[in-house]
Computed example of a mutant assay.
Amino acid sequence: MENQTTVYMLLLAGLSDLPHIQLPLFLVFLLIYLITLTGNLLILLLIFTDSHLHTPMYFFLGTLACLDMSCSSVTVPRMLFDLLRDSRFISVPACITQVYFFFFFTVSEVSVLAVMSYDRYIAICRPLHYMQIMSWKVCVQFVSGVLVFSAAYSSVHTLFLAKLTFCRSEALQSFFCDLPQLLEASCSDTFINVLLIFVLGIMFGLGILTVTFFPYIAILTTILKISSKTTRSKAFSTCSSHITVVSIFYTTICFNYFRSSANGHFAEDKVSSVFYTILTPFLNPLIYSLRNQELKISLRKTLQTLQIKNYSD
């Protein structure tokens, strides 16, 4: 430790070292990023402009869209920038800052998905008391609580991360400053950091996971008792889209953070990281818009209104 030199710049390995695929990767992920922003902004626009969508469910969906854009914007612009240059150096403070905001938006997203499960439970299992329980004040309190919790969770990780010393010259095997790869690059004792990942991850992760999936036992039981096929189909469509998003997100993030940290998994790390940092925010608006009849009707009305305005002009 005494003979090692502390470094203040870290090297990111990026998605690929092959020069001939750098530009194609840049174009592909630029397109995905633009579609991500467009899709989520479109959902926000529909929710703001259509009074029929001014309900707690769509308030949380709009919050999720904001978090998707923010989470994607923490990692993708930097990755696109690195794909166009040979050296991918990033300062240690910038790296830790990226970790903080990535954790903040990721934990916020997981927590909002849990709140959305509770919202669906109240809407389907206690429909007569829905607006009384899920008032606008309660919705705002839920989102505010999520943001405060996420800020505290992210601060704990980044405070302990800031105490580490980095003195290894090898590149971080990722396209952004992800915590597992960052810990491997440190020459300090990372026992506390690894312990925090597992203890906080298990404590809060299992709690959030329980809140997310446990209501679906009552939800599915209630849906199966509904006699109307139309009502049952509508309930299934909103729940299935939510379950699909949650499953993709949890599967990829657990694969990266709770498996063995042994070397030799760099390719798997990058694939799972691409899923939960880039593809999940990209897929969320597609999943919700394609499986949600109210959003499709709202989009159709908006397009028809724009066509009428164009004809009248």
Rank of each mutant, 00 (worst) to 15 (best):
K225A: 11
D178A: 06
L179V: 14
F48T: 06
T36W: 06
T49G: 04
L147E: 02
L83A: 10
A218V: 00
F160L: 05
L44N: 13
S233W: 11
L159S: 07
I133V: 15
T251P: 05
H129N: 06
A171R: 01
K309Q: 14
A94K: 00
V194N: 13
V28R: 04
F59I: 13
F26V: 02
L206R: 03
E2L: 07
V274W: 06
M116E: 12
V74K: 01
Q98V: 00
D68G: 07
K229M: 11
G145T: 07
H20D: 08
V143N: 03
S169V: 05
H52W: 00
P77F: 12
T165L: 03
L53T: 08
F275I: 15
F149A: 08
F255G: 04
L164C: 03
Q4A: 02
M69V: 14
Y216M: 01
V274D: 00
V140Q: 06
L18H: 03
A171I: 05
F103L: 12
A94W: 01
T251W: 13
F142I: 01
A185Q: 05
C66S: 13
H52A: 15
L113Q: 07
Y58L: 01
F142M: 14
L172P: 03
T252P: 01
C167E: 09
A185M: 03
